[in-house]
Design a protein around this nucleic acid. Structure first.
Lengths: 214, 214
DNA sequence: AGATAATTTGACCGATTGGTAAACATTACA
DNA sequence: TGTAATGTTTACCAATCGGTCAAATTATCT
């Protein structure tokens, strides 16, 4: 008798671990490129190199795959914000937050698009995560920024909109990659693009937020 | 004999005009919320309040609806950038560009999401528009910004990434509205949100780009 | 009014969707 | 090695997909 996902054994098989990994990798490919509703199990199965019923042996539904993916990716995605340190030097903290987010956009564009697709379509599967853990984390870090502003370490500004603007500018390079490529064309292609973006964003945020000595 | 979309008469009927408008309005609702692949003709038909074959009488395929929508919206969407004036005062031009884009995000969030969905999923239907008219317009305005920087009117910066960052920060409020709402919660709700965002973004961009008198 | 063109609908089509049942194959372990 | 649990596949299902068709209805014009 086939009992999916270790309902009885508690311990996960080697095969289970490998196949689930394989499936989630394929699911990330497909979901991030086409959104949840636009993706089909058959597509994921093809990318994963296994049959559809085989997929459904490990994840009972399409939603289950998506949820497993979201859960796994969400933690990683918020890591840079979590690293934001109240004790650190404000300029350094902001600068390295921007850089880390930009690196994430460069190295994990699929993860970025997975969230973008989800949020863009009303976040039907992750509303609780947004209103709960995410909001909590942002509230906490916003308080840090507010304190910096109050202490005169950075310019007075709305900390929430500051965070939003860092999110949007950095993730833009993953989520709207096609547009960025189309506009920049060949002349600005290649690895230099990342450094150009990083340089500009640091200039923008540091220049816009740092209190300059008179 | 039924001949769709004035193939014979040249002149469009009153009914044609009304119904096509009705359909595109409904299509904007559905496509912007679920993406092209995630949307169904039945959904659009229901929102439009007409039967599916009736829809297909005016637009022969799902793609035709989407294309008509894109074409109609694209022009409006680039209007603010087109208004960017080389002769104007740099600070004013940038400030009002930001404000106009932010107003667009507030007043036409569906249009913003339509493009976001499209670009996010690889822009399969609008690649030519991106590489053609859009790139051309951006190239032109980038040159203006570069000239301002060279003349010392604003800080030296990469004009393309400046434009990207204005796009991303402003459109973020339309495209990621659910996330913004979730994070800000009730305490920052209401009409004040728009003004808060506008104030922050102006501070960020003007502060980050203007050359301050010594 | 009557004729003609324009519009609308219900019934339907083949393809694809997410998912199931059960037979079959493989693995792990005694 | 035998056997029970685990893993895989073929064949299939009802529902939904984009789209067609012919018949019915409505608007337009003389």
């Amino acid at each position: 008798m086939a009992i999916p996902r270790a309902a009885k054994t508690q311990r996960r098989t080697r095969i289970q671990e490998e196949k689930e990994e394989q499936i989630l990798e394929a699911a990330l490919d497909v979901f991030s490129a086409r959104g949840f509703r636009g993706s089909t199990i058959d597509q994921i199965a093809e990318v994963a190199g296994m049959s559809k019923p085989n997929l459904l042996y490990y994840f009972r539904t399409k939603e289950a795959m998506h949820r497993a993916l979201i859960d796994r990716v969400l933690y990683t995605w918020l890591e840079p914000l979590r690293a934001f340190d109240a004790e650190g030097n404000p300029e350094n903290e902001i600068r390295s937050y921007i850089r880390r987010k930009l690196e994430l956009a460069r190295d994990f564009p699929r993860e970025s698009r997975l969230f973008a697709n989800e949020v863009l379509q009303g976040a039907p599967h992750i509303e609780d995560e947004l209103k709960g853990p995410l909001k909590q984390l942002v509230d906490e870090k916003a308080e840090v920024i507010r304190a910096w502003a109050k202490a005169g370490k950075i310019a007075k500004c709305d900390p929430y909109h500051l965070i939003f603007s860092i999110w949007s500018t950095t993730q833009h390079y993953a989520d709207f990659d096609v547009q960025v490529r189309a506009v920049l064309g060949q002349e600005h292609a290649g690895a230099g693009r990342f450094e150009d973006a990083a340089r500009f964003l640091e200039q923008l945020f540091i220049g816009g937020l740092m209190v300059r000595p008179a």
